[in-house]
């Protein structure tokens, strides 16, 4: 179980596989304003990245995975013309 809801925060933990994309999408669409904590997340599958990239939730904590922190985090920034 590596996608977990903790109050308003969705925590991704460990290696996130392709099957984690659907629950993550569901949790983000269920309620607006939920944040995602990548601090304990390992490598993210492309399908998971796609969800984060398309919906652009606020990301909490520096991702524990170096590749995610260096290369993917900047891509999850706030969408143009869609502050907050």
């Amino acid at each position: 179980m590596s996608v977990r809801l903790d109050g308003m925060v969705i925590r991704l933990e460990g290696e996130c596989r392709v099957e984690e994309a659907e629950p993550l999408l569901a949790l983000l669409q269920e309620a607006a304003g939920r944040e995602v904590d990548l601090g304990a997340a390992g490598p993210l599958h492309t399908a998971v990245v796609q969800v984060l990239f398309a919906l652009r939730p606020r990301i909490r904590a520096i991702p524990g995975d170096a590749f995610t922190a260096r290369w993917l985090l900047p891509l999850f920034g706030v969408k143009e013309g869609q502050q907050e």
């Binding site: 392709v18 994309a21 659907e22 999408l25 983000l28 669409q29 490598p43 993210l44 599958h45 492309t46 399908a47 990245v49 796609q50 969800v51 990239f53 398309a54 919906l55 590749f67 290369w71 993917l72 891509l75």
Partner: peptide, 29 residues
């Protein structure tokens, strides 16, 4: 993206949607 992780000498990375995202959000699969 697992392949991209294996790219040596990466200096820039960009993601783009191939087609605009549907109103209902991305198709997860």
């Amino acid at each position: 993206l697992a392949l991209v992780r294996a790219v040596p000498g990466l200096v820039a990375l960009r993601l783009l949607p191939r087609t605009p995202w549907p109103e209902t959000g991305p198709e997860p699969f």
